[in-house]
């Protein structure tokens, strides 16, 4: 089992590294960091621009391969990802933002996975009953919505609710209330309240996809012979379904989870932007808009590491559930 997981981990690690490096090359080819200085009045001289860009290691006159090598050497030797165009280090920018994104991502993914699995199993067990139909159509509808539409619809609902109740029950703009006075507890509740709508938004999207997939996997298992065997040896229906059904149906789910995680990341970036959170999603978008190659690569590296972790976790779950890979 250790061998299996180590092999998968190395596979993911290589993929993530190459994804990051390709992102750097792609960004270097497409983005033009000089454009930030060209439109100024009075215009800075070419030498000035060149020396500024050389400082960032993003001068388009240097061949891409040389810049890439310098970037790698800088990362390996100094553990640095370079500077953003605002001359702050990319790492410090990332550490300031990562917590915001991770809070949303971890909560959203876990809740979505749990709800998705439960709904999927429920739908499969009660196939074609009313509750199954409701779950199916609801998840189709959610899957048909872009993530920003879900976010904005939730905001409209919250605003209406606040207006009806006459109090500011749900706060949703930003990550916390600026200038809030009070102790640790007050701040905690404030952040939790701000977290509510983005988490619901991310959870809805995730749970809709997972429940469809889990339902199909579960239906497959339900018709298998070993469920009947488990029943005939005297297990109750619930216990047979849980011990022999859900456990087996979770195996394909773990693969699907690893595969869908990139989509979840994109969805989370959009959700952050809609709720104006200053997270990694915003960093990535801004980096592209401002032609900031170093910041962009940093944000992609963050995503690649998350995919690496999610993929490895999914493989651990896979190995734990499926005894065949443990041999």
């Amino acid at each position: 089992m250790i061998g299996f997981i180590a092999k998968r981990f190395i596979n993911y690690a290589i993929l993530s590294a190459i994804a990051t490096l390709s992102a750097y090359v792609l960004a270097s080819i497409i983005l033009n960091p000089a454009s930030r200085y060209l439109g100024r009045n009075p215009a800075p001289s070419t030498e000035t621009i060149n020396s500024i860009l050389d400082g960032f290691g993003t001068n388009p006159n240097t061949p891409v391969i040389e810049r890439l090598w310098a970037w790698i050497v800088n990362l390996v030797a100094h553990g640095s990802l370079g500077n953003t165009i605002h001359n702050t280090s990319v790492i410090s920018e990332m550490t300031a933002r990562a917590g915001t994104s991770l809070r949303l991502l971890i909560l959203g993914t876990i809740i979505a996975a749990v709800i998705g699995v439960v709904l999927g199993v429920w739908g499969a067990v009660r196939q074609y009953k009313t509750s199954d139909q409701v779950i199916s159509y609801a998840s189709f509808t959610v899957l048909a919505m872009p993530s920003f539409v879900i976010g904005i619809l939730l905001m409209i609902t919250a605003t209406t609710l606040n207006n009806v109740l006459g109090i500011q029950l749900i706060n949703f703009t930003g990550e916390y209330t600026a200038g809030l006075e009070g102790g640790w507890w007050v701040h905690f509740w404030d952040r939790a309240a701000h977290l509510l709508l983005p988490t619901i938004s991310l959870t809805l999207m995730g749970a809709a996809g997972y429940s469809r997939y889990q339902r199909s996997a579960m239906l497959d298992v339900l018709s298998a012979d070993y469920i009947r065997t488990a029943r005939s040896k005297g297990r109750t229906r619930g216990s047979a379904l849980l011990r022999h059904g859900v456990r087996v149906a979770l195996i394909p789910m773990s693969t699907y989870f690893a595969y869908s995680f990139a989509t979840v990341l994109a969805g989370a970036a959009v959700t952050e932007l809609v709720f104006s959170w200053h997270g990694m999603g915003e960093m990535l978008m801004q980096a592209i808009q401002q032609s900031d190659i170093n910041a962009f690569t940093g944000a992609i590296l963050f995503n690649a590491i998350l995919i690496l972790i999610a993929g490895t976790l999914a493989d651990i779950v896979y190995a734990a559930l499926d005894p065949r890979v443990r041999v």
Partner: peptide, 10 residues
Amino acid sequence: VLPSLFIFIL
């Protein structure tokens, strides 16, 4: 592994 939304934007 690279979320395609980010490549689109780039």
